[in-house]
Design a protein around this nucleic acid. Sequence first.
DNA 1: TAAATACTTTGCCAAATGGCTAAGCATGAT
DNA 2: ATCATGCTTAGCCATTTGGCAAAGTATTTA
Lengths: 113, 113
Amino acid sequence: MAKHDPDLSRVFHALSDPTRRAIVAALAQRPLPVTALARPTGLSLPTVLKHLACLEEAALVVTEKQGRTRICRLHPAPLAVAEGWLGAQRTEWEARTDRLESYALALMKEART
Amino acid sequence: MAKHDPDLSRVFHALSDPTRRAIVAALAQRPLPVTALARPTGLSLPTVLKHLACLEEAALVVTEKQGRTRICRLHPAPLAVAEGWLGAQRTEWEARTDRLESYALALMKEART
DNA sequence: TAAATACTTTGCCAAATGGCTAAGCATGAT
DNA sequence: ATCATGCTTAGCCATTTGGCAAAGTATTTA
């Protein structure tokens, strides 16, 4: 039952923090260097770097050093994976409610005879 | 920028643990009492109850006491909210790559004249 | 009424998380 | 060569997390 899926765990964990979600949202618009990401958060640079490391471990962000600045880009594939998992659960749930509904309809039809 | 969205934080955090995802997946099939959820995890009951509390705080699960057993059901709305957030980020990212592509195409066309 | 079942509460623990400051290193500008 | 910029590393701290065992409460069931 409990298939340990380290990827999903890392992605969901990365997205569970508002600072990291803000970083993802910013990088969805355009690549940015670390300092530009840090400024609007009001957090210290080392703190933001830790958040970035967390996002990189989840493969949500890739970075590349250019001279003395590090450019960060969004890597959207894990977003799609997470989205797929969520959709699958919703689909399962909806399939069950559909089965319940048709069962209820069948009962009503039978009661009418 | 960093709109602290406690709902999303709680939902993503709840889903960041494999045990809790397994619980969600099980409840997507059908409602279950606590012990039935605990059995396949191999974890102690108090531990599973803590996971359930976490899922309830995220509004992913609702429970109802029937006699001495507590029935747990999936509440799929937060799944849809999380899915929506993920989709929005992907959409933003795709919009940007589309803009880049048409810009590149325009450059190529101009170069040809 | 007594025993089994199904949680529930309490208290404990090690490890991870999210934050900081201070000090270091590498590169671009003067 | 010097200085400012932009990251990096190292260490510290309080809180949270995920796990457990033990003991309690509330409902069946016998």
